[in-house]
Design a protein around this nucleic acid. Structure first.
Length: 110
DNA sequence: TTAGTGACCGACT
DNA sequence: CAGTCGGCCACTA
């Protein structure tokens, strides 16, 4: 049996990513958790990689737990993601996003 | 079938 | 503080 529920997992992940509001970001681990797949953080990256280039999914709002873009700095995909975030007024301190300020869902109510 | 890899993460040196 | 090391899962050679 070929892993057929793989599709369901990917859809669950995409479903979560779709809900990230503009101007906010979410981490791979958090997306996995919200999708009901704790521990699948790594798989989230794989799922996003499957997206077609003209996908409407806001994949750029997903970054790693350190608040950084998980592409090699300076690479084309890095620059694309960074520019899209800047367009949504998500700012970088060096190459880092302030998760305290932009993380969604906002559970960091101090 | 085994070993290596990746848009990750947290604990542990 | 930085670097390493397992653990996580699916895919590929």
């Amino acid at each position: 049996m070929t892993t057929e529920n793989t599709v369901e997992k990917q859809q669950a992940i995409w479903s979560v990513v779709r809900q990230i509001p503009s101007g906010k970001v979410c981490t791979y681990g958090k997306v996995a958790e919200l999708a009901g797949l704790p521990g699948y953080s790594r798989y989230v990256g794989y799922a996003l990689k499957q997206l077609s280039k003209d996908s409407q999914l806001p994949w750029h709002r997903v970054i790693n737990s350190r608040g950084m873009i998980s592409f090699p700095v300076g690479s084309e995909r890095y620059l694309t993601q960074r520019q899209r975030l800047l367009d949504e007024s998500i700012y970088f301190d060096r190459q880092r996003v302030n998760l305290r300020q932009f993380l969604w869902p906002d559970e960091n109510h101090r």
